[in-house]
Design a protein around this nucleic acid. Structure first.
Length: 258
DNA sequence: ATGGTAGCGCTGCTA
C-alpha cells in the first residue's frame, strides 16, 4: 500500500498538476495540506472520477487538509474530535480510517518567529495533537500521522543548522513536542531507510533555493509502533518540485506491506 | 542589501 503526504500550496492553483501526479504515482492514500479552499469548493467528484474517496476540512484562503483514499475511507473526522467544531477552529487536521489504518493529515502551525504568539500556538497545537492521539489510541494500533509539521526533526534535516539558530522549525521546544509524540509510540518512517543529510521535502520559492539545495525536511509520515514494521520503503519525489508552477513542497511516499 | 517568490484576493497577510 502506497501512502503519501503532500503540501500542495493551493489545490485550486495546483489541481491539474496534482491530478497528473496521482495518475503517475498511483498512491493508495494521499494526505494533502494547504488546500486553501472552502469546504464546498473541494473537487470531490473530480477525485472520485480518479477512483478516490475523500474527506476535506477547509475554511477558505488559508490552511485546509484532506485525505484521498482508494482503499476505503471510514469514520472521517474534521478537526481534533468528533465533537462539534469550534467556530474558529483552523482547518489543520482531518482523519479517517483507510485500509485498516487510522490516517491523520496535519498542517502544523508555522510559528512565524520564536517571539510571536503564533509560536505559542504551534506548541499548544502539537500538545493537543499528542493528547488527541494518546487519548484515543494505543501505539500498537495502526496509525499514520502524515503532513507538514513545520518542524525539522534534527540538524541533518536542514541545510545549515548554524544559520537557523533562533528560528522556528528547529527550536528546542518544538523539536521536543515532536519527540514527545515519537516517544509515545511513533517512528519517522523516512529515517527507517535513510540516514544521510541533504534530503529535504520543502524549499523556499525565493532565491532559487531548490536549485541551490537549500531546504528542510519538514513533511513527515509518522507511523505508530503497530505499523512501523510494515514499512517497506520511503522516498521524497523531488521531481514533483520541478517544472512549471510547482508547490514549494515535494510529496513524501511510504510503501507499506498492508 | 532583511532581499527574494507564490497564493489569495484586493491590501496586506501568510508562508
Amino acid at each position: 500500500m502506497r501512502l503519501v503526504t503532500w503540501n500542495v500550496n493551493s489545490l485550486k492553483a495546483r489541481l491539474e498538476r496534482v491530478s497528473d501526479w496521482i495518475i503517475e504515482a498511483q498512491p493508495d492514500i494521499l494526505c494533502l495540506q494547504e488546500t486553501k479552499m472552502k469546504q464546498d469548493a473541494f473537487p470531490t467528484d473530480h477525485f472520485a472520477n480518479l477512483g478516490y474517496e475523500s474527506v476535506h476540512f477547509g475554511t477558505g484562503q488559508w490552511n485546509g487538509v484532506a485525505i484521498l483514499s482508494r482503499v476505503g475511507l471510514e469514520n472521517p473526522i474534521r478537526g481534533f474530535s468528533a465533537q462539534e467544531l469550534a467556530q474558529d477552529e483552523e482547518a489543520r487536521i482531518v482523519s479517517a480510517t483507510c485500509g485498516g489504518i487510522r490516517v491523520v493529515s496535519v498542517y502544523v502551525p508555522n510559528g512565524r518567529s520564536l517571539d510571536d504568539d503564533h509560536y505559542k500556538y504551534k506548541l499548544e497545537w502539537m500538545n493537543r495533537l499528542l493528547h488527541s492521539i494518546s487519548g484515543q489510541h494505543s501505539s500498537k494500533d495502526k496509525i499514520a500521522i502524515c503532513g507538514d509539521f513545520n518542524i525539522a526533526p534534527d540538524d541533518i534535516d536542514v541545510y545549515d543548522p548554524k544559520a537557523l539558530v533562533g528560528m522556528t522549525h528547529v527550536s528546542e521546544p518544538e523539536r521536543n513536542s515532536l519527540k514527545q509524540l515519537m516517544e509515545w509510540g511513533f517512528k519517522d518512517s523516512f529515517r527507517k531507510f535513510y540516514s544521510s543529510d541533504r534530503l529535504y521535502s520543502w524549499w523556499d520559492y525565493r532565491g532559487g533555493s531548490f536549485h541551490k539545495g537549500i531546504g528542510m525536511r519538514i513533511d513527515l509520515i509518522l507511523v505508530s509502533l503497530g505499523l512501523a514494521d510494515s514499512c517497506l520503503g520511503s522516498l521524497i519525489d523531488r521531481n514533483a518540485r520541478k517544472g512549471q508552477q510547482p508547490s514549494d513542497h515535494a510529496p513524501v511516499v511510504v510503501e507499506l506491506d498492508e
